[in-house]
């Protein structure tokens, strides 16, 4: 390398670490580093010198679904949970925010605690919660969905009982941005429903996806895609943060109440 400095090679390693080289030269240096201990050591020294600059970059928490996607991509088995976090799930404020009264709360918790455990819960550590208010076309809230990413489950609570024709029931769909609807499951029209979220579904949850409810035959859409009218839609967002807690839920219960 033609430079006015006597130590051209070392300079190239510094430029590599700083990040100013074009794609081809970067690739060359990367190959050198992989093949030569001397190059690797020189690069490591430059990292030690320059990377502390990153101290000045503020931290930004990534959305919980990023971790779900990493687990999905690596096909990691469900490890033990890292820390028993104070769960939003356990929070009274959350349930108040959901706008359900004591009876519905008791019913929901009963569903959550009493269900059998069909599969080990796909553990999503450091995950949080997401929520969606599924608005009906007339503007009133139809259901509120809360997603517990750590335990891979979703509770869908009707705001007010919705009436359906004989033989018809609501089915919940997740629609990824630009993608086809994926069935999450049938939900109840007048009481909370808990649904298990498989890793593929979990990986799609995020602010670019929406939840929708369509009118389907009692057993669910026969085609795997919505066949009836879409009666409600809701964006997915972070759940509100909650302070207090009630120790009422059954930890580690993966739930499935397909009606």
């Amino acid at each position: 390398m033609n430079t006015p400095f006597e130590d051209g090679n070392n300079l190239r390693y510094a430029e590599y670490v700083l990040g100013v080289l074009d794609a081809d030269t970067r690739a060359e240096v990367a190959r050198e580093v992989a093949g030569s201990d001397e190059a690797a050591t020189a690069v490591a020294l430059w990292q030690r010198r320059l990377i502390p600059l990153a101290d000045t970059i503020g931290e930004v928490a990534p959305a919980p679904y990023v971790w779900a996607r990493i687990q999905d991509a690596l096909q990691l088995e469900a490890p033990a949970r890292v820390t028993p976090r104070k769960g939003l799930w356990d929070s009274l404020e959350l349930w108040r925010w959901l706008g359900i009264g004591a009876t519905a709360l008791a019913a929901a918790l009963l569903v959550v605690v009493s269900l059998p455990r069909p599969t080990p819960a796909p553990a999503v550590v450091n995950a949080g919660y997401m929520a969606s208010t599924i608005q009906q076309d007339n503007g009133s809230a139809g259901w509120t969905a809360t997603m517990d990413l750590e335990h891979a489950r979703m509770v869908v609570v009707p705001a007010t009982p919705v009436s359906f024709e004989q033989g018809r029931a609501p089915e919940l769909w997740l629609i990824p941005a630009g993608g086809k609807p994926i069935s999450v499951g049938m939900i109840d029209r007048d009481k909370p429903t808990t649904l298990a979220l498989d890793p593929a579904l979990l990986a799609q949850l995020g602010p670019t996806a929406v939840l929708a409810v369509s009118v389907e035959p009692i057993g669910g859409s026969p085609t795997g895609q919505p066949t009836g009218a879409v009666i409600g839609k809701g964006a997915i967002g972070a759940a509100p943060n909650a302070g207090g807690r009630v120790a009422l839920t059954g930890h580690g219960q993966a739930d499935r109440t397909r009606v």
Binding site: A54, E59, V60, P62, V66, V82, V125, N126
Partner: peptide
């Protein structure tokens, strides 16, 4: 050790995400 990996993610992902966003 998947548990250690999860803990590592928990402790470092916000820093790395800040770097990527920047």
């Amino acid at each position: 050790d998947q548990k250690a990996f999860a803990e590592l993610y928990k402790r470092t992902s916000s820093k790395l995400f800040g770097v990527c966003l920047r």
